[in-house]
């Protein structure tokens, strides 16, 4: 299985943990993720104004490059996934923007939204398959009570993202079950963590995080798992500043658990050893 891979800037820096564990697991599962050659930052937020095309262009370049190789474009960061998928949707549905973007980029071939953007979780679900994944698990996370946190970017707006049932998703829980863990269901799993508000309004975010953490705790969670560097930061750092004081619920990237269950943790990979 071969896919184009778009890492994004955060995975190359603060969220290196997310990338490393994901790539390790991919290799173990026999998935080839070919990093795109000249990727640029996706812009981190999808431009909501119907006006301009400039903020799209870097996304469109990556999408077009993936189309040239004929591969699906895989992302691991929820924000990159969100931006690329929405940019692609615009290219597919808005003729005006599509024409402008094509004119501007002067690509060898016109790009009209032909690439399929998928998230690493979808890769596991639809390409590998959770039953297959379950069979490949070496150290099942039996008995671990883990709460999945979806946040916003994977799910919303539902009509465009079409990632899962936006109000009642199950992909992360199914993933946890495949790893042998017990998924904790709690009502805050699709709420917003506060995103970049933490840059300016830490108190607001701390309060939002508190609700999420408390809900997970009160439903018996022993850890929380997410798929987004920003959620990760907010959940991890700001739970220390919650009004009630310092709750300490461990926060993992979903790929960290994958790595653990596939028994890749602490193992120096052969490739890296060379």
């Amino acid at each position: 299985m071969r896919f184009s891979y778009y890492p994004g800037c955060t995975l190359k820096t603060t969220a290196a943990l997310l990338e490393n564990s994901a790539l390790k697991a991919a290799r173990a599962l026999g998935i080839e993720l070919i990093e795109q050659e000249k990727w640029q930052c996706c812009g981190a937020v999808f431009p909501l104004a119907a006006l301009e095309i400039a903020p799209f262009l870097s996304s469109v370049r990556s999408l077009a490059a993936a189309k040239d190789t004929g591969e699906k474009l895989v992302t691991i960061c929820a924000a990159c996934y969100h931006v690329l998928k929405r940019a692609n949707h615009v290219m597919k549905t808005d003729r005006d923007v599509c024409t402008k973007a094509n004119n501007y980029l002067q690509l060898p071939e016109q790009y009209r939204g032909g690439t399929e953007v998928i998230h690493y979780l979808e890769l596991l679900r639809d390409e590998v398959g959770f039953p297959t994944l379950a069979r490949k698990v070496k150290k099942p996370l039996t008995g671990r009570k883990i709460a999945a946190f979806y946040g916003c970017l994977l799910l919303r707006p539902p009509a465009v993202m079409q990632f899962d049932n936006a109000e009642n998703p199950s992909i992360m829980e199914d993933f946890l079950h495949a790893l042998g863990a017990a998924a904790v269901d709690y009502p805050y799993r699709t709420e917003c963590c506060g995103v970049y508000l933490s840059v300016q309004n830490e108190e607001i975010v701390a309060e939002m995080v508190a609700k999420i953490i408390n809900s997970a705790l009160s439903h018996g969670a022993e850890a929380i798992v997410d798929a987004c560097p920003l959620c990760h930061y907010n959940l991890l750092e700001l739970q220390k500043k919650t009004p009630q004081g310092k709750s300490t619920l461990p926060v993992y990237y979903f790929t960290e658990l994958l790595e653990e269950a596939l028994d890749l943790k602490d193992k120096v990979e052969e490739k890296m050893a060379f």
Binding site: C9, T14, G43, A44, V45, Y196, V199, E237
Partner: peptide
């Protein structure tokens, strides 16, 4: 401009992901 000067170095120190900084910049 909504972002006050001096905010960025402060938050960047804390290991805030690039994604947040870029977003905040683009939004604010």
């Amino acid at each position: 401009s909504r972002i006050k000067a001096g905010v960025i170095p402060r938050v960047a120190d804390k290991g805030m992901p690039e994604q947040a900084l870029v977003s905040a910049f683009r939004k604010y």
